[in-house]
Simulated assay, not measured.
Amino acid sequence: MMKILSRETKGEATFDIINVIIMAILCFITLYPIWFVVVNSFNDGMDAARGGIYWWPRIFSLAAYKTVFANNDIITSFAVTVLKTVIGTVIHVFFTAMVAYPLSKRDLIGRKFYMTVGIITMFFSGGLIPTYLWYKQLHLIDNFAVYILPAMFSFYDLVIFMAFFREIPDSLEEAAKIDGSDDFKIFYSIILRLSLPVIATIALFHGVYQWNDYFTGVIYIIKKSYLLPIQTYLYKVVSENSANQAISLQPGVAVNRRVTSQTVKFATMVVTTFPIVCVYPFLQKYFVKGMMVGAVKG
């Protein structure tokens, strides 16, 4: 008996060791590219062009970050990104929740038809050219609203909201109706206040999407460059500049010969990623709860 327990203990210990090694390798593969970008962003540009910087800066320098924040285009793009992320997330969460609430009621007239149409949109779309022509007819080209209106609603997020709303006891709504509350008041006063976990989850999903979205700016912002978000600006920096090219700043700003487009790209990546990384830990507990919505319960 003792030999059997000893073998099981050794087997569990071996499994734990292998598991830890695999997880350590996966963590390293995931985190090292981020560390590489951060390290090179803090290194002297001309020195970084030589290569060989892997673990820490060889010649520490803040010149790349000074260049980033000295460029008014980057600052404007950063402000556009913050604005569209905040406004877009708030409107998306509220509108999607407002649509999901009545659809979570099985006695809603036409519910099956609405659900069928919504499911079809999850798998099929009109394509880029029809979408562009449609946005043009709606005067969304070169318009800040192109970041907000098309992203107001997501059927995928609606399904998550519906699953959560069905977990709320019907007795709460019945008691509110007895007290004289209508459906709108019940939704605003009761349902939304009880839905913080799923609201935080959807807000995180959509907030990250809005923050990282560069494609919308590339396609639909043509003439008004001041409406470009930071991710689109970063995309243009990456695609248009070579690794060793010196950065030319705006008129009236001195050119720093110790800065290259490569280090500015790295610095811009850090600046654009840092805010969303800081927000995630505060929403993580709600995110985990929201992801469990609709899970099979034993």
Score class of each variant (00 low, 15 high):
Y114I: 03
I230V: 06
L83Y: 08
L5C: 08
F69G: 00
V293F: 04
H139E: 13
H139S: 15
A151S: 08
M152R: 07
V208M: 11
I53H: 08
N212W: 03
L192K: 06
I129Y: 08
L228S: 00
N241I: 07
I219H: 09
I160K: 01
V39Y: 03
I17Q: 13
F215S: 08
I202Y: 01
L108W: 13
F184D: 12
L31P: 10
G88K: 00
P281C: 11
F215K: 05
R50L: 11
W55V: 14
D157C: 04
K66Y: 12
T131V: 04
F123W: 14
K185G: 10
E174I: 10
M291N: 12
L5W: 08
V293R: 08
I160F: 06
I25R: 07
L196I: 13
I276T: 04
L204M: 15
I230N: 00
L83A: 10
H92V: 00
I247F: 04
V279Q: 01
Q284F: 14
V99R: 12
V146F: 02
K289W: 11
A267D: 06
D107E: 14
F124I: 07
A49K: 02
F266Q: 00
Y280A: 02
F274D: 12
I247R: 01
G180I: 10
I148V: 12
Y214V: 02
V259E: 01
L103E: 09
I119M: 15
N40Y: 00
M1K: 15
L103S: 05
A200C: 15
I18D: 10
